[in-house]
């Protein structure tokens, strides 16, 4: 497994530049239609809104949900991992497990009756779904901090707040960042499905293409969504890499 991780790391550094570069090339107007039209699957003309705007909408949804998820998830994880809060922690773990199990599309679709169509139900779905890996990893990371380190910190006279900021969070950081990475990458996929709720983004050409039976249009959206997911995964692997 060690070898796997090492090879993955080296491959990751290299791919961290490859995928975003490919994505940017594909976003230059005319490049992607030029590649896809000769396949004879259908015709892709100029996009309205242009592809880069769809990509930005997609990225914006994912990043905004990521920020909200961090703002909600980290305090939640910290709160339920304090001493004598076992019942709350179990509730959080059960809910998170449930979130992992319930299909994304079901979560997104159930938000529509409450919030109507557009980006709002998608954002809610992204937050609900993105919380899962962040909270579960943060709980695992914070609970994994060795009691010895905490004892030592206590012995040095650190207050509970100092222990949290200067011992627990730094030690749990790699696990937490891995959760953020998983959450972000999954959310790229969830946001694609969000196009069915009218959220815009790169799912839009896919869904339009499917309903118009234009495979070229489907391919355009699918290639860009896949490249965006791979790019974010590669870029975040640079941050999350253990030092």
């Amino acid at each position: 497994m060690n070898a796997a991780r090492r090879t993955g790391g080296r491959l990751g550094n290299w791919a961290a530049l490859l995928w975003p570069a490919l994505l940017l090339i594909c976003l230059i107007p005319g490049v992607l239609p030029g590649l896809i039209n000769p396949l004879g699957l259908g015709n892709v003309g100029a996009f309205e809104p242009p592809l880069w705007r769809l990509t930005l909408t997609h990225l914006g949804l994912v990043l905004l949900s990521c920020v909200i998820v961090l703002g909600l998830g980290l305090p939640l994880a910290v709160a339920v991992t304090r001493a004598r809060r076992d019942a709350l922690r179990q509730l959080a773990e059960t809910l998170v497990g449930l979130g992992q199990t319930v299909p994304t599309l079901a979560v997104l679709a159930l938000a529509v009756p409450v919030l109507g169509f557009g980006w709002a139900p998608t954002l809610l779905g992204l937050i609900a779904y993105g919380l899962v890996p962040v909270v579960s990893n943060a709980v695992v990371g914070l609970r994994g901090v060795s009691p010895g380190a905490l004892d030592a910190a206590r012995g040095m006279g650190m207050s509970a707040r100092q222990r949290l900021w200067r011992v627990e969070l730094p030690l749990a950081r790699p696990v937490i960042l891995a959760g953020v990475r998983t959450s972000t990458v999954y959310n790229v996929g969830t946001a694609t499905v969000g196009a069915a709720l009218g959220a815009g983004g790169l799912g839009e050409p896919i869904i339009n293409g499917l309903s118009q039976q234009n495979t070229a249009l489907v391919l355009t959206g699918a290639v860009l969504a896949a490249l965006l997911a791979l790019s974010l995964d590669a870029l975040m692997s640079l941050f999350a890499a253990p030092h």
Binding site: T192, L210, G221, A222, A229
Partner: peptide, 10 residues
């Protein structure tokens, strides 16, 4: 890593 909808489309 590839979104499921994109994989279906691809």
């Amino acid at each position: 890593t590839i979104p499921s909808l994109a994989l279906l489309g691809l």
